[in-house]
Design a protein around this nucleic acid. Structure first.
Lengths: 119, 119
DNA sequence: TCAATAGTTCAATGAATTTTGAACAAAGGC
DNA sequence: GCCTTTGTTCAAAATTCATTGAACTATTGA
């Protein structure tokens, strides 16, 4: 089960940039990337704000095409649309994650660093 | 002569993304990149809005560290801080320009493509 | 000097955005 | 069935952002 999401080719650059221009939403995306793109429930973002506020920011990220939301029981599982984003805007998510001090890449679950850098 | 600019290492990712999340400012940056990073006076952006509105957006871009403003007589010459941005956030400007349908790269005036890719 | 050009600054307005709390819906566990 | 957990929706308040016009500065050129 899944909430409605826009098609990958309808993701708009200004909307993506505006969505990630908010520190709270950027932190959410960073956390998703940190998880190796494994889905995280809304509650996992509690440190970034109130339940209702997180719900608002997650809706923005979903509407911008940055995240996917799957319904699992009473939870929503949020994940990055990393492949869709990289197909639409090659390298963009990677460079933003790298710029935000990130280890995770847009592709691949979790590249084990040869010499434990950057975690 | 030059207006005050923040240091390259103080450029903030959320500020850059928020600044470029506005369609008018993204169009301005695109136009600067299109020019091969040659400076453009404020009047060159007239198509994007009123004089006073452009002044506002150019101030936002300068404050975010995306553009440099040189004073030349009664004009202001605006240019992209492409090298500073690329040093601080490698690949970010490039991927945004590419995503916005751009030919110009963050570095080098105009690299002639060997096999006409990405134009 | 006078007028025109190029932009900035200021204050006001309107439009979006963010944040909050109350009320709600939909499972899941007892 | 009932309560708890998880999250959404709604409306209101607070904040921020974008746009406009009037007034201003500074430079250039006649």
């Amino acid at each position: 089960m899944s909430l409605p999401h826009i098609a990958a080719d309808q993701i708009s650059l200004p909307h993506v940039l505006a969505a990630l221009g908010d520190p709270t939403r950027l932190a959410i995306v960073r956390m998703l990337a940190d998880s190796g793109n494994a889905p995280i429930a809304c509650g996992g973002f509690a440190e970034f704000g109130s339940k209702t506020n997180i719900s608002y920011h997650l809706a923005k990220l979903r509407e911008a095409g940055i995240t996917r939301t799957e319904i699992a029981g009473t939870s929503r599982l949020i994940s990055l649309r990393a492949a869709d984003l990289d197909a639409r805007f090659p390298g963009l998510l990677d460079s933003i994650l790298a710029a935000s001090g990130e280890a995770a890449r847009a592709h691949g679950p979790l590249p084990i660093p040869a010499t434990g850098v950057l975690l």
